[in-house]
Simulated scan of single mutants.
Amino acid sequence: MALTFTLEPPITPALRDQVLDLWTDVSNAGGAVGFVPPVAREQVRPELVRHFVQMTEGRTRLLAGHDAHGDLAAVAFLARSADPLSAHTLGLYSVMVHPKHQGKGHGRALMAAAEAAARATDGIEVIRLSCRGGHGLERFYAGLGYREAGRIPGAVRVAPGDDRDEIIMVLPLG
């Protein structure tokens, strides 16, 4: 079943809680979205609030994907660079698909919706994102046309003695 994507949906208390639950569930399933399991909702909440503040300031946009039952299944945050020298770039952050919806093509659909949103944004020529090494995510993004633009060895510490590379990926839209 396909997801329905909405860019900048109204932020209701229900949607806020659904995003918080999604982020927590993805993190606890081992998803590379800023936390290491086990994580509780209250540990994720400050990061979600930070994203919502950036949305209120007009710096970040939420892309939400709902399943046929209306349940939140996927999200990504899109942010235009605040640096005037890279204002032509759009960053994707906290890209996630709920574990129960993974393996169904929803990640590809989310990325296609994010690309469409970027293409519809005046002046955007490049999408950029970073991913944590050790998950094979760079292969997933490469399959969507992204290319590795840089790698910071050991930049992400998921546990003592377990450092992962931060991999910067870009998709030129030209």
Rank of each mutant, 00 (worst) to 15 (best):
V39S: 07
Y93K: 12
I124M: 13
Q43Y: 04
G133D: 06
L78S: 02
G123P: 01
R119D: 03
L7V: 08
R164K: 14
Q43F: 03
N28R: 06
A82I: 11
L129Q: 06
D122G: 14
V75Y: 02
Q43E: 15
P37H: 08
S86K: 12
P38T: 02
P38E: 12
T6Y: 09
R61I: 01
L63G: 02
A149F: 09
T12G: 09
G154K: 03
D21I: 05
R16Y: 13
L110S: 02
L20C: 10
I168K: 10
A76V: 10
E148G: 05
S27N: 07
G123V: 05
A109M: 11
L90I: 05
L90H: 05
V158L: 15
A76Y: 01
A2V: 04
G70I: 00
P46M: 07
L72T: 01
I152W: 13
Q102T: 14
A117Y: 02
M55K: 10
R164F: 00
P99I: 04
I152T: 14
A14V: 14
F77V: 03
G134N: 07
L7Q: 08
E47D: 13
F5R: 00
L173E: 05
R16Q: 13
G70K: 03
F77L: 14
G133P: 00
G136Q: 07
A29Q: 04
A74K: 01
A149H: 08
I152V: 14
H101L: 05
L22Y: 03
S86Q: 13
R45K: 11
F77R: 09
